[in-house]
């Protein structure tokens, strides 16, 4: 009876030591892992402001944001109505055009193909939008995938209109 009581106390002590030790090891490991996450200076550059006043209707520009290209397109009336008229059932990744833009004249999206990351070419492809030459994905005037291996529409980053001529991305 006494022996098993002693054994329980011993086991508890060893278990407690191992447990607290494991917590210590975990706490030590975290900084070693977290130091590889983006540091403060990288996170500080996480927003970019873009001047839209020089962009003509039907034209687009590409800006660098967080190391990736962002397409900013000033759409024509025709491109806007074309985007709005597409039925959701036809889309691999159903999204309404209205949900992808803040002001329908301006399409702001990450110029990165959602298949394997190449930069699609503008004014190309069968849907009047973009075409990715790497594996043949076609995007429409709202940047939605219509044909080809890409699984989802081109991503819309977080952005807002600072004023009528300026947007802030990120």
């Amino acid at each position: 009876m006494d022996k098993s009581g002693k054994k329980d106390r011993r086991d508890f002590l060893f278990t407690a030591s191992y447990t607290v030790g494991a917590i210590g090891l975990g706490a030590t490991a975290w900084p070693l892992i977290h130091q590889m996450n983006p540091d403060r200076s990288v996170k500080a550059l996480a927003t970019t402001e873009v001047d839209l006043s020089q962009i003509q209707p039907g034209k687009s520009i590409t800006v660098l944001w967080r190391g990736k290209p962002v397409f900013i397109k000033r759409r024509t009336e025709g491109e806007i109505s074309e985007a709005k008229s597409v039925k959701l059932e036809e889309l691999k990744h159903p999204e309404k055009d209205e949900d992808r833009v803040k002001k329908e004249e301006w399409l702001v999206m990450l110029g990165v193909c959602t298949h394997l990351g190449c930069v699609p070419l503008s004014d190309k492809g069968e849907y009047n939008g973009w075409f990715c030459p790497c594996h043949g994905s076609h995007y429409d005037t709202s940047g939605r995938i219509r044909k080809g291996p890409a699984p989802t529409n081109m991503e819309i980053p977080k952005y807002e209109f600072v004023d009528n001529n300026t947007i802030k991305i990120g």
Partner: peptide
């Protein structure tokens, strides 16, 4: 100094 100021836990490392 970048490590000391900006890298996560850089000062500690």
């Amino acid at each position: 100094e970048h490590i000391m100021r900006d890298v996560n836990y850089g000062w500690l490392l």
